[in-house]
Amino acid sequence: MNWLAVWTIYRHEMMRALRTMLQSLISPVITTSLYFVVFGTAIGSRIEQVEGVSYATFIVPGLVMLTVLVQAVNNASFGIFFPKFVGSIYELLSAPVSYLEIVIGFVGAAATKSFIVGSVILITASVFLELHVAHPVMMFVMLAVTCVVFSLFGFIIGIWARNFEQLQLVPLLIITPLVFLGGSFYSISMLPPAWQTVTFFNPVVYLISTYRWTFFGEADVSLPFALAMIGLFAAVCLTVIWRMFRTGYRIRA
């Protein structure tokens, strides 16, 4: 392994984030605060407890997931798309680095950035609410796993996208709906049985459910099954990336 190259890519990506730190940190904090005010305080005060906690508290794990998923996909897709766009990717492709090293560098940096944003949102939430986390270690492990898995997914989008429009398409048309319909703001058990069945085809359901379990100790779906699904999604992403590099898909003629 060329660890120096991995570190170089990672550091380079983190430096880019530092240049735009204000917008990458302040904007999610403001958005989340708005959610707390609107859903938590205004609407939430009229909603009875969900799964034994106040509605405002109930939506915290879902909100963190919503932001982290979008951030991970955006960070990772932009990270590899940008050198493609300006042409500087020639250097990555002609360097003595393996595809795995490129992926670790880019995905590692994107995951780190989203992890930081997720943590900042948790801190913001704890300003509004008194948060009790049932399984704190698992809570951070799950956050980290989510950041990595969705950064892998974002990396695929970054290689696939031919222009900025396509880059925005997937987060906008797929990620956001999946997260909203994945139980961020409600418990799956609140849905009619037919819709519950449909929901189980949404991979984000497992993520949010498991993450909510780390906070409240209760989950909509069985924990081992949810973890297996997350593992499966990660494996699919890794396989797709491996195929992309092997065939040179949209990066090497």
Partner: peptide, 30 residues
């Protein structure tokens, strides 16, 4: 191998010294 491409393909917001350091690190040189 070192390659100087035909087109100017550089990250616009990067500083010159950082760009050179990046290239060196990418090729595994301390």
């Amino acid at each position: 191998i070192g390659l100087v491409p035909q087109e100017v393909q550089l990250e616009p917001f990067e500083k010159v010294l950082d760009a050179a350091r990046f290239s060196r690190g990418l090729f595994g040189k301390a």
